[in-house]
Amino acid sequence: MTEGNFVDYTKVHIESGRGGKGSTHLHREKYIDKGGPDGGDGGRGGHIIIKGNKNLWTLYHFKYQRHFKAAQGGNGAKQRRTGEDGDDIYLELPLGTVIRNTETGQIIHEVLEDGDEFIIAEGGMGGKGNWHFKSSTRQTPRYAQPGTEGEALEVTFELKILADVGLVGFPNAGKSTLLSVLTAAKPKIANYEFTTLKPNLGIVEYRDFQTFVIADIPGIIEGAAEGKGIGHRFLRHIERNSTLLFMIPADADDINEQYQILLHELRKYNPEMLDKERFVAISKSDMLDEELMGEIKEHLDNEGAFDGAPYMFISAITQHNMQQLKDRLWQMLNE
């Protein structure tokens, strides 16, 4: 999937179908001049139904169509025949999509399971036919109910990626390179900031054919919680990751300070993010020799870096500690 095909936010207009009209038919056949009312009920209008689809990873299919209107219910007919229900419209969404009322911002539904169905706009009720209104004093009612209107609604779809591990780090921290080594994903990689503008997902193959999903998300910067840079577009995607893998390059001026800035941005956006499991990977360690790596480790340990979160030196280029990193992430995911 190219970056241009990844859409994680869109607004759509939905409208369910109007109910069909009830019939005012009066029964007529040979030798029976006044058979009485036999008009059937109108059919229900079509619903707008949300359905979860685990094979979708983006809202791209809403990029060019943002108006959906379900069919009207059929009108009632003679011999008390009910009109056909209007055809429902199914809107398939990737797992992790939050649906909001665009006007109020209120969450209507969250799509979390494959095949999950939710009627977001109910079709209008069909009108009753004239036979319902027959009585001892009103033998031939010549009226019936019209169908009720459907529901019209402006909704917003927000995709929050469902992954086991989310990569957190400043731009150009080596997240995309790590993803390309651990998984079969092929993210865009270059030596400048904000190479990754859209989230990338990869499946890590572990021992005994077991797997877990890791997400490379656009790099965070100071002020992201206020929407600076890529801001909320980034932070929204790590809300549902169960484990956060912080990546800090070994050539950073102050490794622990970078970690604290990242942590501060998460705290400002949503304090509950700090309840997640955390692990720190010091990337690009191929730039260090054994002596310098030992000095950095001693310094980090002495100052109680990372608030006690475990850490590891890694290099995606030389494969240093790659298997050990997978072992540790798997252990954290299954504790």
Rank of each mutant, 00 (worst) to 15 (best):
L159I: 08
K11T: 11
I120A: 00
L153E: 05
T104Q: 10
S283E: 06
H320L: 14
E3M: 12
E239H: 05
I119P: 03
E272I: 02
W131V: 04
I248L: 08
A252F: 06
Q331E: 15
T211W: 06
M287N: 06
G174I: 07
T140V: 08
Q323L: 12
A77L: 12
Q324M: 13
Y9R: 13
F118G: 00
L26M: 15
G43N: 02
Q258A: 09
S176N: 05
L91N: 06
G19V: 04
H27I: 00
I32D: 12
D114Y: 08
T196L: 14
R66E: 14
G127I: 07
D85M: 11
M125C: 08
V213N: 12
D216M: 03
D254L: 06
F68Q: 04
T148G: 08
V12Y: 07
G42H: 04
Y259K: 05
P271G: 04
A163H: 07
K160S: 11
A250M: 02
V181L: 12
E335N: 14
H27G: 03
E151N: 10
T24P: 02
E193G: 10
G35M: 11
K160Y: 07
D116V: 00
K54N: 13
K11V: 12
K51V: 13
L179D: 09
V7N: 12
M332N: 10
V155L: 01
T156E: 12
K326S: 09
G115I: 03
V280S: 05
S180D: 09
K228I: 07
T58R: 10
Y311S: 09
D116R: 02
H320G: 00
S315H: 10
I261E: 12
D286V: 03
E226D: 14
G308K: 11
G96C: 04
E257W: 11
R328L: 08
L178W: 05
D216A: 03
I107F: 00
M273E: 12
A184W: 00
D8K: 10
E92P: 00
G169C: 05
A70I: 06
T2E: 14
K54D: 11
G73R: 04
G42N: 04
E158P: 00
L333G: 00
R100M: 03
K228R: 15
